[in-house]
């Protein structure tokens, strides 16, 4: 019960701190003179032409997908890591071989990703 209230208090505190000061700053700062040129997005001084949405950047979603899948495998490593030391005394071979099979499949997945060229960043 205690950590949950503390976590909620910290989140509210951090968001309030950021938002309140942002609002305070916009009130305190000099009056905003909106000029067409100034509010153009920053293109190192040149006036950027509005190109269609950048197609080249679509490649990044594959990194996010691989991140999800390998993240799940890390999640399954935590419970095993906690009890490894204790279970060594009871049935050591069992717990060791069990995780080596899991790691082998994980390594095979990583090796497949490597060989299939999905990790080529041009």
């Amino acid at each position: 019960m205690v950590p949950l209230i503390a976590i909620m208090v910290i989140t509210v505190l951090a968001t309030l701190f950021g938002a309140a000061l942002l609002f305070f700053v916009s009130k305190v700062g000099p009056k905003v003179k909106i000029s067409e040129i100034k509010s153009l997005s920053y293109e190192c001084g040149l006036v950027g032409e509005e190109k269609k949405s950048t197609k080249v950047s679509v490649k990044f979603y594959l990194v996010a997908i691989l991140f999800i899948l390998f993240d799940i495998e890390i999640i399954f490593l935590y419970p095993w890591a906690i009890i490894y030391n204790d279970m060594l005394t009871t049935n050591a071979v069992f717990i060791f071989s069990e995780m080596m099979v899991f790691m082998a499949v994980l390594l095979f997945g990583l090796f497949y990703v490597w060989r299939s060229g999905a990790l080529r960043w041009d």
């Binding site: 942002l22 700053v25 916009s26 305190v28 700062g29 000099p30 905003v32 909106i34 100034k38 509010s39 153009l40 997005s41 920053y42």
Partner: peptide
């Protein structure tokens, strides 16, 4: 300095 800077955001944002 950071407090008194002008607060603006680009129009298309």
């Amino acid at each position: 300095k950071f407090i008194f800077k002008e607060e603006f955001s680009p129009n298309k944002s």
